[in-house]
Write a protein that binds this DNA or RNA. Structure first.
Lengths: 137, 137
DNA sequence: AGCAAAAATGCAATAATGTTGCAAATTTTA
DNA sequence: TAAAATTTGCAACATTATTGCATTTTTGCT
């Protein structure tokens, strides 16, 4: 069965052209995507607003998560594995290349334990490393 | 001697009302600040543009650094210790409280070592943890 | 398949955020 | 203190994000 349909149905979402196309984009792309990337790639076939709303919906359902960045851009990436809404969306490290500017999910680099001071409750941990990626060095 | 003047002079910056006021704000505040926070706290005594440019200058000089966040906001925090422009700006963990929405620099929580795959060169590492802070629990 | 209800989309308007050029004001340098 | 250099504020503009509502599409049911 189609993977796209599967994901959408599993999350009780109506199956629409926009959602299929955007979800497909995430499945195909290796790294993280910015809103702008998505608009470009979908070739202006959807309204900006639809893209915003679709991304928002996907985040709420836990299909994608957003990645912290140092500039003011929002990056989205697929939640691989068994990622549930409201849970840790992420247990891998993100890498931002200073040269090509791409964000890469380092799927196999686990986030280390961090001990917080007394009184702090830990929910989600994001690790973002910048430097030069293996392509650009 | 005045700490503000000292910092500005050391970085070869003209001493102006705006820079003094904004720098003072950073010295006084325990956590990180967003652009909006600064505009509010300075009581609209400066133009938006001035705030933007001042922050930009401070980042370039390595007086402050920006912190990655999951939403689309940029947070700035003072570089404590001996922080040079173009270097690691940061060796501590940042905490964002889901309740009060404040960002806190956990000065005494060191960033753990992360081993990257072959070919990746590490420059700066940011760790952002969200959850509930000690005030809000 | 066909129909009603529910959900999603597109459009328009609006808000929020960030940038640029340039003249006036302030700060530095000598 | 005067000239040079820097910074500021204003205005205009660009980009990015949000909201309401009518129209279209999708779903669930018979």
């Amino acid at each position: 069965m189609d993977q796209l349909l599967d994901i959408l149905k599993r999350n009780q979402l109506s199956v629409t052209e926009g959602r299929k196309k955007i979800l497909e984009l995430f499945l195909k792309s290796p790294g993280a995507l910015a809103h702008a990337d998505i608009e470009k790639s979908t070739d202006a076939s959807f309204d900006r607003v639809t893209v915003y709303r679709t991304l928002q919906t996907f985040v709420e359902k836990g299909i994608i998560h957003n990645i912290p960045t140092t500039d003011n851009s929002i990056l989205y990436a697929l939640c691989r594995d068994n990622c549930e809404a409201g849970h840790h969306h992420d247990n891998h490290v993100h890498f931002i290349c200073d040269v090509c500017d791409k964000t890469i999910c380092l799927e196999h680099v686990a986030i280390p334990e961090v001990k917080l001071p007394k009184g702090f409750k830990q929910n989600q941990t994001d690790v973002v490393i910048s430097g030069v990626c293996s392509e650009c060095r």
